[in-house]
Every structure is written in C-alpha cells, then in structure tokens.
Design a protein around this nucleic acid. Structure first.
Length: 493
DNA sequence: TTAGGCTTCCG
DNA sequence: GGAAGCCTA
C-alpha cells in the first residue's frame, strides 16, 4: 500500500500562528499538514534551560491548541527527541516537505539541526527553513544588513486564513507510541510570578505598551522598579516567537502618529533593530557560546571562587542593589537591561570571576533568554570584545541614582526595610547604634560586602585594560568590528 | 547612553 | 569647596 503524502510544520521557538511563514507555506500546498512540537529531553537537560522556560512554552502551545480545537485541528506534542519521531513517521507516511523557521540557538540545537538535515536528505524530505525575524543566514557582509532588515520588516506579514486548514490527525495508537513520557507536571503548572506565555498575552503587552505605557519609557528604562511597567516587556514573547518582529514593528509604526510621546516609540523601534543585530552576531560567530570572541582574551584566566559565585547567585553579596536585582530576577525572571549589565559587571570585574561561570545561571533565570542576545551581551559587558569601551558599573552610584528612595531594594532585601534611604545604599557604614535603631544586625541579618568595591574595581580595570592595549587585542577588535558592525549607523556598537 | 580624575569656574 | 565639563582608561 502506498504511503500517503504529508507535509510537516515543525514549531520551534516560533510559537504563534500569526505571521508564521512555515505554516503559511505549508498550507499553500495541496497536501495534508502535520503540526508538531518537540519537548526534547536533551535540550531540557542542557544547562541553559529552566522549568520556567518550558512552562512558558507549554502555556503558548496550550493556547495554540485551544484555537485549533475549534477547527477540529491539532498540534501534536512529543516529549521526545526529534529524529526517532521523524523516523517512525516515515514508516507510515511519505513526508514530502518539512517547514520550520531557521533557529539561532545553542550549540546543541545546532547539532540537532545538522543531524535532522542529514536525515531529511537521506529520506528525500525537503526541509524548508525560513528566516527568523531580521536575521540573515550565511551573511557575507554586514554592509547591506540594515537595508535588508528594513525591507523584511516592511514586507506584508504571512497571514493565514483562520479556517479550512488541511490538517492531519494521527491515529491515536501511533501517537501514543511516539509521544514519549507524560509532560512533567512542573511544565504544565503555572507560576503566577512570571509573565504568561502565548500570543494572547504577547499582544496584550504590546498593545498596552504602544498605546499607553510607553509614555514614560525613556524615564523608566534604567530604573529597576519603574522599568517593570515602563518597558514593553515583550522580550519573552520575542524569544519564544509569540510575536514576529515584523508584527511588532508594523503595529508600533501604525500607532506612531497617535502617540503622545513619539520619541519613546522611536527609541523602542531602534531597540528592535538592536535585538536582531545581536542575534546576527551570534548567528555569524556562534563559538562565542564557549570562548571569548576576541582572541586576546582567551588566555584571561580567573580563579574560580565558589563562595563568591554562590553569594552572587543568592543575592548575599552585601551590596544592596546587586542583591535586590539577583533575588528579584530569580523570583520573577526579569530585571531591566541596565541592572543586568550591573550584575554581570559586578560578577566579572568586582568579584573577578569568569563570564562562563555566570552565563548558564543567568540563562536559566531570564524568562526571555535568547541565546543570540545572551552571549554577545555578556561578552560585551565582560569587556572582552576589544570593541567597546570597558564598562565597569559602580553599584553604589547606580543604587543612589536609579533607586534613590530604596523602593526596589526594600522590596527584595527586606532585612534593610527600616533603614532610611540616606543610609540604605551603603549599609556597612551603619554604626552599632544605627543598626539597633533600624533593626538590622550586620554580619547576621545582612552580610558585610564580600568584596571591596573600590579596590576590586581598580584591580579589574588595570588588568582588562592591559590586555586591551595589546596589539593582538586591537587587531581582533578591528576584525570584529568589520565582521559584525559594518553599518555606519551601528558603528558605536 | 561608563566612571573617575582632572581642570576650570564660581561664590 | 562644590558643580560642571572635558579626557582617558
């Protein structure tokens, strides 16, 4: 009996139906379509992954399935690696085409894709991958990148009619034999402290930002507390593809003229460029997941101090703003950009620890973890690209400037709740009497600083700048600039 | 949208 | 003696 032909749409980090090119292309064909998502155990176990990510994915998928049920359709979830499932499907079906987005992921997903490609070639399956947002695969030169980004964002979105989809139903015996172990209860249980997954919430956040919340964007963006409301908060939806960049861009443009604060929306749009710009760097030089992109810094060795690392992870460094940020991040999956830069700076400069010893931990904490932004950003903030100026943040100065009343700090470091703002940023200076008065016993309730901020800053600065001045560091800097930042508009990057 | 140090200017 | 502005790491 001849096997019946099918096409497959493989959802990865593109969990939406709106402006989804693979889905659009598949539905154009006159062949029934199978929609699949894989919870791959290998990826779940990779050290950059956390239950919060899979929960977000599961919420997104649940929403998509809900919409399909109205149309008697189905999106099939497998708690299983990709290849064994594809292999088994070829026993029952003649897979013609497989459609997916190009994924810019960690090395494990890259390896997996290479194996899938081999499999597809072997079985005569055409695997058609389409671009993700503004990122260009096999980019030769950065020269026209910006232009191509604009073009792509201005193209009409791939909108599919919401009915008469020719979707395939798997026989339940077949699905049961392939779907793998039950999806862990952790993944299917909601934690109300995190943003909600799915297209519905993605649009809620985008809409409220573009229509009203952007008003104070520029003012709140650097503030740990105000940013939670004043920033768009669409980052997890972009990371998991609940929104396409094109839809964000188009929607924002559409509301631009009615905005009471156009400058804010302009700032926001320029950050949409930056989003893709960073992912493009990672796409072009993905070894930066493991090694310093600038050769000169590959020899930089730092002595690992487990006590420092643990104190930093747990928000017990004795620097109130750093601790507040870390505790808040662990609990809610979000802190704003500047505070991320600050905690990275504290780790790599003040504590003088290797960036690789924070990369996976932070990846697990960020609900919006996006490998293509994560690694270029961490390397830049660690001052090892040889391109930008080295930014060593002063956590005390930032504390006073961005949380002057200590509202954010007191929320997350409740040990210091009674300390007045004038003393809050440097609690180690509290006298015995003040400690009694403000109900905090330093060294007991709240630690003394684990490091001298001023001295450690000086030492770090000297060492990093010494490497920076070497010939090889500067040569590499030029190479990196040419490869990744050829557009004059981005030259400051 | 880096930080600190140094100079200058002012009261 | 402090604020503001420029320079350099």
């Amino acid at each position: 009996m001849p096997k019946s032909p099918i096409n497959i749409v493989w959802f990865k980090r593109d969990l939406r139906f709106t402006d989804h090119e693979p889905l659009y292309r598949a539905l154009e064909q006159d062949i029934p379509v199978l929609l699949v998502y894989f919870f791959e155990p290998s990826l779940i176990q990779y050290p950059d992954s956390d239950v919060r990510h899979w929960r977000f994915v599961y919420e997104s998928l649940t929403e998509m399935q809900g919409r399909l049920e109205d149309r008697n359709g189905r999106l099939y979830l497998f708690h299983q690696e990709v290849l064994p499932v594809l292999d088994a499907l070829t026993e029952h079906y003649s897979i013609q085409n497989m459609y997916s987005h190009e994924e810019i992921g960690n090395s494990l997903s890259y390896q997996r894709d290479k194996e899938v490609k081999v499999f597809c070639d072997l079985h005569g399956i055409q695997w058609k991958e389409t671009p993700t947002n503004g990122v260009i695969r096999k980019l030769r030169s950065r020269k026209t990148w910006q232009k191509r980004w604009d073009e792509r964002m201005n193209q009409p979105p791939f909108l599919v009619r919401e009915h008469d989809w020719n979707l395939i139903h798997l026989a339940s015996t077949l699905y049961d034999s392939l779907k793998g172990k039950k999806i862990p209860v952790d993944f299917t249980t909601r934690n109300p402290k995190f943003q909600e997954g799915g297209e519905y919430w993605a649009w809620k956040y985008l809409q409220s930002f573009v229509q009203t919340r952007h008003q104070d964007y520029s003012k709140s963006i650097s503030k740990p507390e105000a940013s939670r409301r004043g920033c768009s908060r669409i980052s997890p939806y972009l990371s998991y593809g609940n929104l396409s960049m094109r839809m964000v861009y188009t929607f924002t443009k559409q509301h631009y003229s009615q905005s009471g604060n156009r400058r804010s929306l302009q700032n926001f749009i320029s950050r949409l460029h930056w989003h893709c710009h960073f992912i493009q760097k990672f796409e072009d030089e993905c070894r930066m997941e493991f090694e310093a992109i600038n050769l000169a810094y590959q020899s930089l060795e730092k002595k690992r101090n487990i006590d420092y690392i643990k104190a930093w992870e747990q928000g017990q460094t004795g620097i109130p703003l750093v601790d507040a940020c870390m505790r808040c991040l662990v609990e809610t999956g979000y802190i704003n950009f500047r505070m991320r830069a600050l905690v990275v700076s504290f780790f790599v400069f003040n504590l003088w620890q290797d960036w690789r010893d924070l990369a996976h931990f932070l990846a697990r904490q960020f609900l919006d973890y996006e490998p293509g932004i994560h690694y270029p950003q961490i390397q830049m903030q660690a001052g090892i690209t040889g391109v930008n100026t080295i930014r060593i943040y002063n956590p005390i100065k930032n504390s006073m400037e961005h949380d002057p009343d200590g509202i954010f700090i007191k929320k997350w470091v409740s040990e210091l709740k009674a300390v007045p703002p004038s003393l809050l940023h440097e609690p180690w200076k509290l006298s015995e009497m003040e400690q009694k008065m403000y109900h905090v016993n330093l060294g007991q309730d709240y630690p003394f600083p684990i490091i001298d901020v001023e001295n450690s800053r000086k030492a770090a600065s000297e060492q990093v700048w010494a490497i920076r001045k070497t010939k090889i560091a500067r040569q590499e800097g030029t190479r990196i600039l040419q490869k990744h930042v050829n557009n004059p508009q981005n030259r400051k990057a």
